Amino acid sequence: MKKLRFALQALVVVVTAALVSLVAACSAPADDSSTDSSTDSSVAYTPVTIDHQYGTTSIEHRPQRVISLASNWTDTLAALDIPITAQFAEQGYSGPNNRFAWTPEHDSEVEIVGSMAALDISKVAAYKPDLILAGYTGGQKNYDRLSALAPTIPVMKKGATVDTWEDITQATGTMFGKNAAADDLVDGTNDKITRFRSDHPNAAGKTFTFAQFQPTGDVGAINSVEDPAAGLLAQLGFTLNPKLAAEHTGTVTRSRISSERIDLLDSDLLVAWTLGDDSAYQKVSGWNGLTAVENDTVVYLTNDNAPAFGVPSAPSVGYVIDLLNPVAQRL
């Protein structure tokens, strides 16, 4: 799993838009903007059904013991002030002190596990969940094991490994009776995106590459804006590197880059992430000749901030913008 996280989720992770319309077909409960219906048991709960890549999940009762297995769900629950019973994260990919800089303050038990791919289901069961927000599960077998414990929401968009920040936000509002608050969160996030584009008109249309550099010297890069990491950058006004876009076939949104094709990484903006080994860049022949390296328009990511791009949430969008602001001024 760690060898090529780049092909999976970005913090079950490794990264995986905002150009995709809402695909979580949900039957929405009534939204009471004057009452916090996510926790108030006196407010009637209307059952909802969420469509996802393995079928549908029905939530018949108001969730009280919510387990998050993905940082984008955790971020969004916290932003909408929805209590989290426990959040799971992978060792080395959970942020400083097991919290990412962009995640809103909240109370929750935190479970750090060695591998999300080999998650001990009994650890989840111990919390007696009544809703599991899983994101990428690695396959239907794992989804089935989780859904035997409680209603489980895997990735909603069919064929994807990460959902867009909009879909996560709207689905959260639907499940917890907070549609109005979710709409406000989406609108506020879109306002930040609009402001970034207005502040950096010279960045509009500039090409970008999002790449992960393995300690082994292997390189992978996103080849489609269907990938939420690239989709977010496209929302901000950048254009996916055309050479990489030409590599996109079928539904796979990541390309392995051979040492002979480092030219595929050449673009105005380069978002570069290694799995904790900064020397991985220097293992790439031709690195110093890349346009973004020469122009000082590389955004260097670490395990502590890469999920802001790769598993985007409404709260992480502002963090991404803050990282991009100084680079955008040089484009």
Score class of each variant (00 low, 15 high):
Ile59Ser: 04
Ile153Gly: 01
Thr172His: 06
Gly114Asn: 15
Phe176Tyr: 14
Lys158Gln: 11
Asn97Cys: 04
His61Leu: 09
Asp130Arg: 03
Thr74Asp: 04
Thr172Cys: 12
Ile112Thr: 14
Gln64His: 10
Ala125Phe: 06
Phe100Tyr: 15
Asn97Gln: 15
Asn98Cys: 06
Glu90Asn: 06
Gly138Ala: 07
Gly92Phe: 11
Pro154Phe: 09
Arg145His: 03
Gly135Ser: 12
Lys158Asn: 09
Met116Gln: 11
Arg62Glu: 08
Ala171Val: 12
Glu109Gln: 15
Ala126Tyr: 08
Asp167Gly: 08
Pro154Arg: 05
Asp81Ser: 13
Ala150Ile: 14
Glu111Phe: 04
Met116Ile: 10
Ile59Asp: 05
Val110Arg: 15
Leu146His: 02
Gln64Phe: 03
Met116Ser: 07
Tyr136Ala: 08
His61Lys: 14
Met116Gly: 10
Val124Ser: 00
Ile112Val: 15
Met175Cys: 07
Val110Asn: 06
Asp120Glu: 14
Leu119Asp: 10
Phe88His: 00
Lys158Pro: 00
Glu90Val: 11
Thr152Ile: 01
Ile59Gly: 06
Asp81Phe: 03
Ser68Leu: 02
Lys128Pro: 03
Leu185Met: 13
Leu80Cys: 04
Ile168Ser: 00
Gly135Ile: 11
Arg99Phe: 01
Ala126Glu: 12
Phe100Asn: 01
Glu60Ala: 13
Pro63His: 09
Gly159Gln: 07
Val124Lys: 01
Phe100Lys: 00
Pro151Ile: 07
Thr164Lys: 04
Ser108Asp: 02
Thr161Glu: 14
Thr169Lys: 03
Asn142Met: 12
Ala70Gln: 13
Ala148Pro: 03
Phe176Thr: 07
Arg145Ser: 10
Pro96Trp: 06
Ser108Glu: 02
Arg62Met: 12
Leu133Gly: 01
Thr172Gln: 08
Ala126Pro: 02
Ala148Ser: 13
Val110Tyr: 07
Asp75Ala: 01
Lys123Gly: 00
